[in-house]
Amino acid sequence: MPRVLLTAFEPYDRWKDNASWQALVELTNWYDGPAQLVTRRYPVDLSEMSHRLREDLHQGFDLVIHLGQAPGSAVIRLESVGLNLRSDGTPLIPNAPEAYRTALPLDAVADALKAAGIPGRVSHHAGTFLCNAALYLSQHYGQSFGMSTQSVFVHLPLTPAQVAADSQDFASMSSQLSAAAIAMTIARLTERVA
């Protein structure tokens, strides 16, 4: 049975909830799929997130799926590239590769989501904040430690409740639908790493 590390983030800034954590909790309420899931909620702090991620990766996983919310996005975004870049323009890790691109079949996952009526697409830029950092660092640490672990970052739309509580008219997706998308992603990707 493949071991999957599934991570999400705590609330930050004006958001009193985080769609990634809500979807993760929803998924764990009913998940009975083909993988052993280990879940984590990471702080919105680069140093602490990096430390905890490094410790978690040493437990040995076949697949790491990081989840984060993307205010304004109307679709599930499967992020393929992690950049060695902080939001201030400096590298996450000096003298390390500029980027890592996942070898996972994200196009096939996006096609499966769309076929199930869930909007999803492959994206090639996870930003320059913690979402990108989680993806880059999990790929870099895995390679540095000689692990076969493969990683991906999945950006989720805000939940309807988050949008209702905000002053801006963002797109939204229910936690139930986001959780279903995550389950499908796990199923498709664990076929590759099993």
Rank of each mutant, 00 (worst) to 15 (best):
L85G: 01
Q176T: 13
L57P: 05
Q150M: 11
Y136P: 00
R14H: 12
P119R: 12
C131W: 02
I118G: 13
Q139V: 02
L63A: 11
R101E: 13
L78G: 03
H51P: 01
E26L: 01
M173W: 03
P34K: 07
R192M: 08
Q176R: 15
A70Y: 02
V152A: 07
A23H: 11
A70S: 08
L78E: 03
D45H: 15
M173S: 09
Q59I: 05
I118T: 15
R41L: 13
D45L: 09
E191A: 14
H125P: 00
P2L: 07
D13K: 14
T159F: 06
N29G: 11
K114D: 08
G127D: 03
L6Y: 07
A70F: 03
A96C: 01
R52S: 11
R54W: 10
S138I: 01
A181M: 09
E55V: 14
D13V: 10
N18D: 06
A161Y: 00
Q22N: 00
I118E: 14
Q69P: 03
L83F: 14
A8K: 03
A181C: 07
D88Y: 04
H66C: 07
W30S: 14
L63E: 14
V64R: 02
A181T: 13
F153T: 01
Q162K: 06
C131A: 05
D111M: 09
S138T: 13
V38E: 14
E55D: 15
F145R: 11
D88M: 01
D62H: 14
N29A: 13
T159P: 10
A116P: 05
A115L: 15
P119I: 06
L78Q: 04
P71L: 09
H58G: 13
W21F: 06
R14T: 10
L113R: 14
P34N: 10
V122E: 12
G117R: 12
E48R: 15
E55K: 14
S138R: 03
G60Q: 08
R121Q: 12
L158M: 12
A99P: 02
S47M: 10
D32C: 06
P91M: 03
A23V: 10
E55W: 02
D45F: 06
A183T: 06
Y31A: 04
L130S: 01
D166Q: 02
G33V: 11
D88H: 01
V25M: 09
D107G: 07
D62R: 07
P157T: 13
I186H: 06
V64Y: 03
S167W: 03
Q168G: 00
S175W: 00
K114Y: 04
S20L: 12
L158S: 09
V193P: 03
R192W: 09
L27Q: 08
K16N: 13
A112Q: 15
R77F: 02
L177H: 06
A112H: 07
I76P: 03
D166N: 09
R14S: 12
E48S: 15
P34G: 11
G120K: 10
